[in-house]
């Protein structure tokens, strides 16, 4: 290896190191700080207080305190929001995958021109900012008495998710050879039977990847859940936003910090277990898209 190359290596390594620090430190910092008291995490005197927890030791007697977590989960009933998020994300992922696999399969196998137009329409729908759609929902939902229910939010999120799901599953199904299901149909299967017995067993890699992205969309949404749900059945993200509204009260900021850390944990787990699927899914989408 010549001299020039080793310089390049050092440059590229330090660049990566810088990015890794930028990407991870905010999370580590917040995780660490969530076990401190507010006067340490937002220290007026010395930023090192947040690391050593000077005030935390004075106020609570220990290095770490779980006051923020207790306040958020028990006093402010964050568990209710977590439960709602669980219901919403699970339903959204299940329903949108069911609709998406059927639709994506049909689009990949149709061969008629209108399938292509449906995909273009889906692309345009994908571009619509979510909140512009919310302004179309609110009035009809109020009039029909649909506003505020978890089920309404679930269906709305499923629909908003469809364009992306269709594109992704369409490009995935296009990579499955046509002969597979067509030979089953030659053997006397109907299209549905061929789908059930031949396609479903081989479709899981694509479905899992698409499901991950549906999960992220439903889990991370703020615009829709904040405007379509009543305060009683809020999900986690709008609940955190409402903590901020009442942050003037002392200690409430730490509730928000604890809630933020709690809501981040599932996302970390997700990437840890499904990193390969996320990477390969973006590849498939990108190379085709």
């Amino acid at each position: 290896m010549n001299k020039k190359n080793s310089w390049l290596n050092i440059l590229s390594l330090s660049f990566i190191l810088l990015w890794v620090i930028l990407a991870s430190v905010p999370f580590l910092w917040t995780l660490w700080g969530s076990f401190k008291v507010e006067s340490d995490f937002f220290s007026k005197q010395d930023w090192r207080n947040a690391i050593f927890g000077v005030r935390t030791i004075i106020e609570t007697g220990g290095m770490f305190t779980t006051n923020g977590y207790e306040g958020a989960w028990i006093k402010e009933e964050f568990w209710r929001a977590a439960l709602n998020t669980g219901i919403v994300t699970l339903s959204v992922v299940t329903i949108s995958l069911t609709l998406g696999t059927l639709g994506g399969y049909a689009l990949a196998r149709s061969g008629f021109r209108y399938a292509f137009w449906i995909l273009i329409a889906a692309l345009i729908f994908r571009a619509m900012p979510h909140i512009t759609l919310v302004s179309g929902y609110l009035l009809p939902f109020f009039e029909l008495g649909l506003w505020g229910h978890l089920s309404t939010t679930i269906i709305v999120l499923v629909a908003i998710n469809q364009p992306f799901t269709l594109w992704m599953l369409h490009s995935f199904f296009s990579t499955i050879p046509k002969d597979l299901d067509e030979s089953a149909m030659v053997d006397g299967c109907t299209r549905f039977e061929a789908f059930r017995h031949v396609i479903i067993p081989v479709m899981w890699p694509g479905v899992i990847t698409t499901g991950l992205f549906s999960f992220l969309l439903a889990y991370n949404d703020f615009a829709i859940t904040a405007l379509l749900l009543t305060e009683a059945n809020q999900t986690m993200v709008p609940k955190i936003a409402s903590f901020l509204g009442s942050a003037q009260e002392q200690g409430n900021v730490m509730f928000a910090v604890a809630a933020v850390v709690s809501a981040t944990v599932p996302l970390f787990m997700l990437v840890m277990f499904f990193q390969r699927q996320i990477v390969s899914g973006l590849t498939a989408g990108a190379v085709k898209g």
Partner: peptide, 16 residues
Amino acid sequence: FIWPSALAMLVFIALP
């Protein structure tokens, strides 16, 4: 195959 997905997009994206 397509109607559930198309209906969802029609009712909750195109209509709004």
